[in-house]
Simulated assay, not measured.
Amino acid sequence: MRVCLAWLGDPAQVAAVQGTPGPWREIVVAGPGLLLVETDETVSRVYHELKWLLSDDCALLVAPVAERPKARGAARGTVAWLRARLPLPDRE
């Protein structure tokens, strides 16, 4: 299982992704145009599946998230969702 962070350049297009079957177990909206994706697939596969759901002019960025990021101002439940899926970063 991996977590990916996906940014959609047009937040209105989140509706095209939510509830649509894809190579993900769950998608959480963390903020306007910002998605957290739980998947067993590669980042490339998630990227392409999202790209095919969006209009051609919608910017898209997908990146893996290996450790729990710091978050403030994210949508309700985002931090708990991340806590349940990702380890804390190593402390120096």
Rank of each mutant, 00 (worst) to 15 (best):
M1H: 13
R2C: 01
V3N: 01
L5H: 00
A6P: 01
A6Y: 00
W7H: 11
W7Y: 11
W7K: 14
L8E: 06
L8G: 03
L8D: 05
G9D: 04
G9I: 03
G9H: 01
D10M: 05
D10Y: 07
V14R: 02
V14M: 04
V14T: 15
A15L: 08
A16D: 15
A16P: 00
V17G: 10
Q18L: 15
G19K: 07
T20F: 09
P21D: 06
P21V: 07
G22F: 09
G22D: 11
P23L: 06
R25G: 14
R25M: 12
E26V: 08
E26T: 10
I27N: 03
I27Y: 03
V28K: 12
V29Q: 15
V29D: 04
A30C: 07
P32W: 02
G33R: 07
G33D: 09
L34A: 05
L34V: 10
L35F: 04
L35V: 03
L35D: 02
L36C: 03
L36A: 04
L36S: 03
L36T: 01
V37D: 08
D40N: 12
E41T: 11
E41W: 04
V43S: 09
V43R: 14
S44K: 08
S44F: 10
S44N: 13
V46W: 05
H48W: 11
E49M: 04
E49N: 12
L50M: 08
L50S: 08
K51Y: 09
K51M: 03
W52T: 13
W52C: 01
W52L: 10
W52G: 00
L53Y: 02
S55I: 06
S55N: 13
S55E: 14
D56M: 10
D57A: 14
D57L: 14
A59N: 07
A59D: 14
A59V: 02
L60A: 08
L60G: 05
L60R: 02
V62A: 02
V62M: 02
V62C: 03
V62Y: 03
A63S: 15
A63D: 13
P64W: 09
A66S: 12
A66T: 08
E67M: 04
E67N: 04
E67F: 10
R68P: 00
R68M: 11
P69A: 03
A71G: 13
A71Q: 09
R72W: 14
G73I: 01
G73L: 04
A74L: 08
A74V: 10
A74P: 00
R76A: 13
R76L: 13
R76I: 10
G77T: 00
T78C: 14
V79I: 13
A80W: 00
A80H: 03
A80S: 13
A80G: 02
W81E: 03
L82M: 11
R83C: 04
A84T: 02
R85Q: 05
L86F: 00
P87I: 03
L88D: 14
L88N: 09
P89H: 01
D90G: 07
R91T: 13
R91E: 15
R91V: 14
R91F: 11
R91S: 14
E92C: 07
